[in-house]
Amino acid sequence: MFTDSHCHLTFPELVSQLPAIRQAMADARVERALCICTTIEEFDDVHGLALAHDNFWSTVGVHPDNEGVTEPSVQDLLDRAALPRVVAIGETGLDYYGMEDRKGGRSIADLQWQRERFRTHIRAARACAKPLVIHTRSASDDTLAILREEGEDGAGNRAGGVFHCFTESLQVARAALDLGYYISFSGIITFKSAQDLRDVVAFVPLDRMLIETDSPYLAPVPYRGKTNNPAYVPLVAQQIAQTRGIAVEAVAEATSRNFEALFKGVRA
């Protein structure tokens, strides 16, 4: 019934609990999950989950925040994207959040390596015709500009993809939709302080929406502050249903259908 379109089951908080997580998913009617890769070094483990379980799939990519890791070429990404059960390129994008605290006082100009890495992922996605899983934080202008510069303008012959764990403005959501991208919402939409984001939930068409946990992070209310896992994704769907005044079953059906439309070959 429900699909978690973005989770990190190889992270230390979750990997040792996989049997219990899978049982919890079944109990919560969470039928599928996309396991997200954040470094080339991590890929074999992420891909291994997809190969071992018929309701898991994998991506390949390097998260914009990761430094001191293997920097992939387009060919590195294409080689892995061609493997069975790899359905997307990413997590990729830009992250300018907390420049002073998190990035040692560097300026946005100093993050050219992030922008070049993002371009590499876009080119790989276009070359293999698989969608992008995009992370953008405090960097939406550059994220959208680079997508357009690389040909992701909403016209034909594009990779497409999803803006995952969306936390940006309604204006950014509109721009992403205009480029043909999906918007994915996480447990953040259940937080009391997230009314602006719930306004975006009300705006995004149901046929362009995905749900996710981004586990082990961002557990929805009433589990906020605890370790997240894919069994909690129905709580995201429930918040969307409440915000839009529709049945949770409608949200589950639409977001699962959208998952299949975006990530080809993921029918369980």
Results as ranks from 00 to 15, higher is better:
residue 94 L to E: 11
residue 95 D to C: 01
residue 87 V to N: 09
residue 114 Q to K: 04
residue 99 M to Q: 10
residue 188 I to T: 10
residue 176 A to Q: 02
residue 24 A to L: 10
residue 30 V to I: 11
residue 161 G to V: 02
residue 214 D to F: 02
residue 256 S to H: 13
residue 224 R to A: 05
residue 76 D to K: 12
residue 17 Q to K: 14
residue 141 D to V: 14
residue 175 A to H: 10
residue 3 T to L: 07
residue 71 E to Q: 14
residue 41 E to W: 03
residue 147 L to T: 11
residue 197 L to H: 03
residue 207 D to T: 01
residue 212 E to T: 11
residue 28 A to G: 03
residue 166 F to T: 04
residue 59 T to L: 03
residue 123 R to I: 02
residue 133 V to E: 07
residue 134 I to F: 00
residue 254 A to V: 07
residue 22 R to Q: 14
residue 244 R to A: 09
residue 189 I to M: 05
residue 174 R to P: 09
residue 132 L to K: 06
residue 107 S to A: 15
residue 183 I to P: 06
residue 204 V to G: 08
residue 159 A to V: 02
residue 214 D to I: 07
residue 111 L to S: 10
residue 118 F to V: 10
residue 104 G to P: 02
residue 29 R to Q: 15
residue 182 Y to A: 04
residue 98 G to M: 10
residue 42 E to C: 03
residue 191 F to W: 05
residue 203 F to E: 11
residue 221 V to A: 02
residue 77 L to T: 00
residue 43 F to S: 04
residue 131 P to R: 12
residue 167 T to Y: 00
residue 7 C to F: 07
residue 175 A to K: 15
residue 147 L to D: 02
residue 33 A to I: 13
residue 69 V to I: 03
residue 170 L to A: 14
residue 259 F to Y: 15
residue 48 G to P: 04
residue 117 R to K: 13
residue 143 T to L: 09
residue 238 Q to L: 03
residue 104 G to S: 08
residue 71 E to D: 12
residue 84 P to Y: 07
residue 30 V to E: 11
residue 184 S to A: 15
residue 15 V to F: 10
residue 199 D to H: 09
residue 157 N to P: 12
residue 210 L to A: 08
residue 120 T to Y: 01
residue 167 T to W: 01
residue 17 Q to P: 02
residue 68 G to H: 05
residue 122 I to F: 08
residue 182 Y to I: 00
residue 107 S to P: 03
residue 138 S to K: 13
residue 49 L to C: 09
residue 119 R to I: 15
residue 135 H to Y: 07
residue 128 C to N: 05
residue 67 E to H: 10
residue 69 V to Q: 05
residue 221 V to N: 03
residue 111 L to D: 03
residue 29 R to L: 09
residue 210 L to E: 02
residue 173 A to F: 02
residue 265 G to K: 05
residue 109 A to E: 15
residue 80 R to A: 09
residue 209 M to V: 12
residue 132 L to G: 05
residue 168 E to G: 14
residue 44 D to K: 04
residue 120 T to Q: 09
residue 263 F to M: 02
residue 70 T to S: 13
residue 173 A to V: 08
residue 258 N to P: 00
residue 72 P to G: 00
residue 246 I to N: 06
residue 126 R to K: 15
residue 195 Q to E: 15
residue 17 Q to L: 01
residue 26 A to G: 09
residue 26 A to F: 03
residue 22 R to L: 15
residue 251 V to R: 03
residue 235 L to S: 00
residue 113 W to S: 12
residue 42 E to L: 09
residue 105 G to D: 03
residue 98 G to E: 10
residue 36 I to Y: 02
residue 218 L to Y: 06
residue 35 C to T: 15
residue 265 G to W: 04
residue 140 S to V: 06
residue 172 V to W: 07
residue 62 V to D: 12
residue 139 A to V: 06
residue 3 T to V: 15
residue 45 D to P: 01
residue 256 S to C: 07
residue 161 G to C: 06
residue 109 A to M: 07
